[in-house]
Design a protein around this nucleic acid. Structure first.
Lengths: 213, 213
DNA sequence: TAGATAATTGAACAATGTATAATCATGTAC
DNA sequence: GTACATGATTATACATTGTTCAATTATCTA
């Protein structure tokens, strides 16, 4: 249901108006990103972006209701681009734990490369959580996590008594906490923290050790 | 180390300047809260609060750098007020799980009573997470959770291999996710969701069932 | 009492985000 | 192809947030 990468065929079918809209959006995103990289995200104002793209400020706001939306667009595009690779990596894994591990490793690598943008992105998505059903519904991670959890339940590695959707949401918030801790501590490595997080996700605080009943 | 409820003796020792500061802060918070209750949090502007309290806008901003800070102040005061009761309830519990349960039940009751303010409060605390070590460090829940987790480790109910601080943070973000889901779904009961969350916190997605080794 | 320190005020400022009327480009129906 | 509806763009104004600054007032300290 989400937006997809547009083939040339799709573009031809769209009509000039829609085609121009997409073009404008891409142009705005590009100009914004250039500015972000040049002078730093925080320093860039919406006015500056509009000027760089040579449109009125109102036009910019029409397509991107906030500066963070420009990051979200970028990230979304990248997610769509990498979706197939990530899914295949997950499918090729020998078990659910490794599948998650591979997905999270790729995500960690991406996050390390885009560190400066993670915080504004996350808070933006979170603040708009009231509207969407799930704050990270558009995120490509959520549906993948859900699928893997369901598979885990089939395999018997994950308790079938717990609602898969609910488990997915818990994982998403564990991931959020992990990301924020990583952002706060410059010396940490996100992929390592994800490993610890995954262990906790599967075994909980009890840690897989059973108390004598 | 955090702010404490002020006894009269404390106030006498403070000096007029500090005494007036506290007085102003309380006055501002009161005026703001009255407005929030009268016309709804979203509708109230900082200017309106300043006018109601009969101070310059700059003065209001000096004490409360954002509208959300007025909620945070309120909540903090209430937390301090209830701290002893909550702690005693936790101490009186027969085990760690029940201790958490009692604490979270009280918190749930409080949240249900203050539903309208939870979302802005949470996002505000979260956005200021870069500064503080932990986004909910000033929260009275964090240190209590940490203490209970350490106790759980002593009792052998919680794996001693995992860092208590790290576990506490995980619980805090599970709690965050739970709160946001509760906010999104008006039909849900927060206390019930906390129960499920706690079960997950202890046993993980595996759910306490061991796979055949 | 004198001088340092902190709080308050009023004003201006930069930026965000919303709203509106006028204008221009595109789509659709005839 | 013309006519009309619809969507996008522009310029502008507006309310609000949050910051800054110089001038003033109140408190503290020596």
């Amino acid at each position: 249901m989400g937006p997809k990468l547009l083939s040339n065929a799709d573009q031809a079918q769209m009509g000039r108006r829609e085609r121009k809209r997409v073009q404008t959006v891409q142009h705005l995103a590009e100009c914004a990103w250039n500015l972000f990289e040049q002078i730093g995200y925080e320093q860039v104002t919406m006015e500056a972006i509009a000027n760089a793209a040579d449109v009125a400020r109102g036009t910019l706001y029409k397509h991107f209701p906030a500066k963070e939306a420009l990051i979200a667009y970028r990230f979304r595009q990248d997610q769509i681009k990498h979706q197939a690779i990530v899914q295949n990596a997950a499918l090729a894994a020998p078990n659910i734990f490794d599948a998650f591990m591979r997905v999270l490793r790729m995500e960690a690598a991406y996050a390390e490369r885009n560190r400066d943008y993670i915080a504004p992105y996350v808070f933006y998505r979170l603040s708009n959580a009231q509207e969407n059903a799930n704050p990270f519904e558009n995120d490509s991670f959520a549906p993948l996590a859900l699928a893997l959890i369901r598979q885990g339940q089939v395999d018997g590695v994950i308790s079938a008594e717990q609602d898969a959707q609910s488990l997915a949401e818990k994982l998403i918030f564990l991931r959020l906490g992990t990301m924020l801790r990583w952002l706060r501590k410059p010396e940490t490595v996100l992929a390592d923290m994800y490993t610890e997080m995954l262990h906790f996700f599967f075994h909980g605080a009890e840690g897989g050790k059973r108390k004598i009943p």
